[in-house]
């Protein structure tokens, strides 16, 4: 349990190290989770999730989660591997629709409108709620075409000049333009991992979404590339609502304003990032951020 010391250094004021928690204790604690600790709601939310359950076939992956995503805010989702962070994030732009066995119940709204109705077109929804994935996944197209793809299919640019403008400004905002401006025709896959991830971010913001979902966007990147993307997230917050899944507590502490802690499909605790890391209310949260499991 030596890792918790480093964590203590990074996040001052963490609770003192306790005895290692046994699995039985965890299960017992989980059963005892009733509702979520902390305030799940915010004023004038961008997105609202109410009583969301997610099933993969018969297996339940998310249990009765209530959570709001605020405007111009980064919310971080943390929790041990397999606790359902990705699953929950993918509910927000209906990416789970693409998995046939996946079933989502409860209500999820964007600007007060339910996104899970038949009338809501997933194509339109995904144009409004963009997503950046864990592994950089540029298209097998040129850098330019990668970024231009979204605007093209949605018809966001009236002419070539406008498209150029969108592509260049998106690349600039993703902090990639200077590195690639001389080779916009090169394949997107020819970039380094960190550049590819910034390309994916540029591609997402080129559609000018209202919400950006990021699923461990930095897990494949080195610290320098990570720092650039964190900076970028901070800038993007001015215009977008951002939900980010991360395994790095430091990253959550650095980029987010609110943090949600998930455990085995349940939302255990939500709160201001500062509060969560300095003064977690729930034992599970405390154990996790002090590095006792996960």
């Amino acid at each position: 349990m030596s890792t918790s010391t480093t964590l203590n250094d990074i996040i001052p004021g963490s609770p003192a190290i306790q005895e290692s928690t046994k699995v039985d204790d965890v299960t017992a604690m989980l059963d005892s989770i009733e509702g979520t600790v902390g305030t799940t709601r915010v004023e004038n939310p961008k997105m609202e999730m109410r009583e969301v359950d997610v099933f993969y076939a018969d297996k339940q992956a998310i249990y009765d989660v209530d959570l709001d995503v605020a405007r111009n805010e980064v919310i971080a989702m943390i929790g041990p591997s397999g606790c359902g962070k990705s699953t929950f994030l993918r509910c927000l732009n209906r990416m789970n629709d693409t998995i046939p066995i996946c079933r989502v119940t409860g209500s999820i709204t964007l600007d007060g409108v339910d996104i899970n109705t038949r009338e809501q077109d997933p194509v339109l929804l995904r144009a409004r709620v963009g997503m950046v994935f864990q592994k950089p996944n540029p298209f097998a197209k040129s850098i330019f075409d990668n970024v231009a793809y979204g605007p093209r299919i949605h018809g966001l640019a009236a002419n070539r000049a406008e498209l150029d403008e969108i592509v260049i400004s998106s690349l600039k905002r993703a902090g990639l333009y200077d590195e690639v401006k001389s080779r916009l025709d090169a394949p997107g896959t020819s970039l380094s991992g960190g550049q590819q991830q910034r390309l994916c971010i540029a591609r997402t913001i080129a559609v000018n979404p209202e919400v950006i979902l990021m699923d461990e966007p930095c897990s494949a990147l080195d610290p320098i590339a990570t720092a650039r993307i964190e900076e970028l997230i901070d800038e993007l917050r001015e215009n977008y609502a951002i939900a980010i899944v991360t395994h790095s507590m430091q990253q959550a502490a650095r980029v987010s304003q609110r943090t949600a802690y998930f455990h085995l499909g349940k939302l255990v605790e939500v709160g201001k990032t500062n509060d969560i890391f300095t003064n977690p209310q729930h034992d599970l949260t405390e154990n996790y951020i002090t590095g006792r499991f996960g």
Binding site: L125, G130, N137, I153
Partner: peptide, 12 residues
Amino acid sequence: SIREAAQGLGAS
């Protein structure tokens, strides 16, 4: 991942 990327951008 390519399909996901395109779908995530709102491609049908």
